[in-house]
Structure formats: C-alpha cells, structure tokens
C-alpha cells in the first residue's frame, strides 16, 4: 500500500488541502477588510470607461460566434472525458479498443469538418 493511505485516504488529504486553500484565500480577504481603508464616495463607485462618465449600462452586445464556440466546446470536452478511460484500458483490449475509438473520433472529426465547411470556425 502506498504511503498516504488508501483510495479514500488520498481524498481525505485532498479534502484537507482544499479546505486549507479556501480558508487561506478567504482569510486573506477578511484580513484585508480589517486593515484597508473605507472612504465612500459617489464617483468612486462608477465603472471605468477611460476616464469619462460611463455611457449607458454596463451591458454590451456580443458576437454570436462566442456562443457557437461554446456549443462546439461542449462536444469536444465530452469527447475528451471519454478518451481518458479509453487510454487507461487500451493495453488490455488492443485492436478492438482502437477500432472503436477510430469510429468515435471519426464521427466527431466529421462534425469538426462540417463546422469548418460551414465557416463557423472563421472569425470575421
């Protein structure tokens, strides 16, 4: 058995690590709150627009292409999730696993090709 304990032991360690990390950052914020000055002023709470008074609200219209990239991201990120377990068991299944993954990646590659042909990957 490796040092640091079993499967659950490692996760307890990670849990302690995460807890200390969160406490460290929140503690820093809290400490700063205690020592930092607080001098409210109306002009201070306006947003920054290169030194002039802000015009309109803080919302701006953004390009729809960002949304398309987000959709494509979901497809390929899920693909990556499936690739990792496959990579682990690959040695055990050999050719069978390889053929199956060729089909899987092939379908997604066609999707990427389709997106490229539709020119949604172009940024104009």
């Amino acid at each position: 058995m490796p040092e640091g304990g079993t499967y659950f032991g490692q996760y307890v360690t990670i849990g302690i690590f995460a807890l200390v990390g969160v406490v460290l950052v929140l503690g820093t914020l809290q400490l700063a709150k205690l020592v930092a000055p607080n001098v409210p002023d109306t002009d201070k709470y306006t947003t920054y627009e290169s030194g002039i008074d802000p015009i309109g609200s803080g919302w701006a219209q953004s390009n729809v292409r960002y949304y398309i990239f987000a959709l494509l991201f979901v497809v390929f990120d899920v693909e990556a999730v499936f690739l990792f377990p496959w990579a682990i068991v690959f040695e055990r299944f050999g050719t069978q696993a390889f053929v199956e993954m060729v089909i899987f990646i092939g379908i997604l590659a066609i999707a990427l090709l389709y997106a490229a042909k539709k020119k949604v990957l172009e940024w104009q």
Partner: peptide, 14 residues
C-alpha cells in the same frame, strides 16, 4: 479504512 494515520501527515504536507 483510510490506510494508516494520515491526518497529521496530510496537515504537514498541506
């Protein structure tokens, strides 16, 4: 269950 007395080690490591 955890595989040894790991809490002290974990805190020191952290």
């Amino acid at each position: 269950f955890l595989g040894g007395d790991i809490v002290v080690t974990a805190i020191v490591k952290t």
